[in-house]
Design a protein around this nucleic acid. Structure first.
Lengths: 239, 239
DNA sequence: CTTACTGCTTGATAAATATCAAGCGCTCTG
DNA sequence: CAGAGCGCTTGATATTTATCAAGCAGTAAG
């Protein structure tokens, strides 16, 4: 594992406040691996053996049941995933696959557990990480139960416009069928919802979405930090 | 706070493994309070000031948006809730109200945070608590996205039949309209789904549900520990 | 024993969403 | 460049779910 990778990891919320010896001991056992696109990293039902940290690329979390499948989320660098399964020592609830060529750091769960017991700051950071994941899924469930599909799409577009260069032009970061699944709808329904939003301040050309009238779009989405996350505030504020 | 209450709390997963001095110091500041039914304990959007532990009664977690409302879960004794908001020091994502007369222990979050830093075993227990909450909501989201309403109801009935006396007779623990909201449907839809399940091994009389043919019910629900939780295994196994 | 209330059910209807089947428009490859 | 493949769109249709409006049943109060 290279020095610059180590220092990138060190800056992660999960590792930032832990003691240096604990961090170094973890890094000695950890190893980095680069995976091609579309590779299944984790299969739901299996048991956790490594804590994963994504350093480069992107990973999709998805779940299947009875022949159906749905996207549960997308993980971007630099963040950890499946910490919960590591802590509980239970089966993964979700599968994970790379969306593109990705670099992943893998740390054996046994060593993570030892470090947690040894280093209270690390344990507290782990709690915060888990608490954030918890809240993400509470918000996801609220989104699904309280909004209809058009409202979810409008909120998604608004959310994507926070930060990142021109706030009025966004390029969809994933294929539309994956986005549809993430938002809990079919690709056909997404396509029609896109068209419907053209009457509410949005222009769509392929994978590029332009916000023409933020106020009108917000009227559909009714953005709410308690569903969309705190970042939505900057998205509403943007001109 | 009475001695027997303290020892009940002490047996909780969250407090079981922490050091006695840490526990005692928390208990000195904590206080118990009894609330009547239908009382709003927590309002979404507010900031956490107390960690809540329910000792007696039951509490419903719900969320609202844009005039709509939905039940997110029900908390039974003895367990904690809103730990995530305490850890993150952010606004509650959900509201909470008592369903019946309930006794709640309240511990100021500042003291909880101090104890977490001081006692690694407490921090690890907190992680496990949060990880379980996280997984509960992942499963809730999977349930909503992968199953239709009839399948969700069938799985719920199967789930309720685990343990607790006669496994073939269950009495709904909450009002039907609350159950409907929890399962992500309208009361009318729940009523019709109930009727539809009569053709799949279930008999319903008011609030009492009898499982006549577990195999046929399971064929609709397709129970899965990765959605319904590990307890579902005993529910399937029951005769 | 009524009466009123509240929550559940039922029926009719509407709206949202999914499914099925083409067709279109990329991009990649030979 | 031609053709194939893949994902997106579109239209027609079916299914699921929600809404609206009564009606019904159990419970509590007068």
């Amino acid at each position: 594992m290279h020095e610059d990778e180590k220092s990138r990891l060190r800056r992660l919320p999960l590792f930032r406040e832990m003691m240096t010896p604990t961090f170094d001991s973890l890094m000695e056992i950890a190893y980095a691996q680069t995976f091609p696109a579309q590779l299944e990293l984790i299969r739901q039902g299996d048991y956790a053996d490594f804590l994963h940290v994504i350093v480069e690329g992107s990973v999709e979390l998805y779940a299947t049941w009875n022949g159906r499948s749905t996207v549960m989320g997308v993980v971007h660098p630099v963040s950890t995933f499946i910490l919960a399964a590591c802590v509980c020592d239970e089966a993964y609830l979700m599968s994970a696959r790379t969306l593109e060529r990705s670099q992943i750091i893998m740390i054996p769960v046994a060593d993570v557990r030892v470090a947690l017991r040894r280093d209270p700051d690390f344990a507290v950071a782990g709690m915060r990480e888990l608490a954030n994941g918890y809240r993400t899924f509470v918000r996801h469930a609220k989104n699904l139960k309280l909004r209809n599909s058009q409202e979810r799409l409008a909120a998604y577009i608004l959310y994507q416009s926070h930060g990142s260069g021109d706030p009025d032009t966004i390029v969809l970061p994933v294929e539309k069928r994956h986005l549809a699944s993430h938002l809990g709808m079919t690709p056909e329904n997404l396509s029609r919802s896109m068209k419907a939003l053209k009457g509410h301040g949005v222009a769509i050309k392929g994978t590029r979405v332009t916000i023409i009238d933020r106020t009108r779009l917000a009227a559909v989405a009714a953005p709410d930090p308690l569903i969309d996350g705190p970042q939505i505030k900057t998205a509403i504020a943007a001109t």
